[in-house]
Design a protein around this nucleic acid. Structure first.
Length: 122
DNA sequence: CTTCTCACA
DNA sequence: TGTGAGGA
């Protein structure tokens, strides 16, 4: 194990087990290796509003698994020739679509058939 | 040593 | 996207 891409961070992802897959907090160095991009790019992505990593007291960026997943999508879109501004829009639409999709799924199934709460019978 | 920002190519 | 400078 001379090189551990997953185990190299200064911040501790396992500080005190709060099983929330949303703030695993990776340092920028770990994240750069994780998504396969340079540190300068991660900063550029944040400038463009593609990701909004939290900051530590000292001002260091803290990337959550959610941010890493988004950064991976950014890499794909970049490869397809989109620029940061375009990716911001695509990401926004994707996120919105996902939100709408789960809403549709929620109301298309999992609802008392033929008579639930939507048909208010007078 | 790592990270931060700004700037330039 | 890569690199440099200057600072914390």
């Amino acid at each position: 194990m001379t090189t551990d891409p997953t185990a190299a961070g200064q911040p501790d992802p396992q500080a005190s087990g709060q099983p929330s897959a949303d703030q695993g907090v990776y340092g920028i160095g770990v994240t750069s290796d994780l998504v396969g991009t340079a540190i300068q790019n991660l900063r550029a992505y944040e400038r463009a509003g593609l990701v909004m990593p939290s900051r530590t007291t000292g001002g260091n960026r803290l990337y959550s698994p959610h941010d890493v997943a988004r950064l991976r999508r950014i890499q794909v879109l970049l490869k397809q020739g989109l620029n940061l501004a375009g990716i911001a829009q695509v990401l926004d639409l994707q996120d919105d679509n996902q939100r709408l999709r789960s809403q549709i799924d929620s109301i298309t199934e999992a609802d008392p058939p033929t008579a639930g709460e939507n048909p208010p019978h007078p």
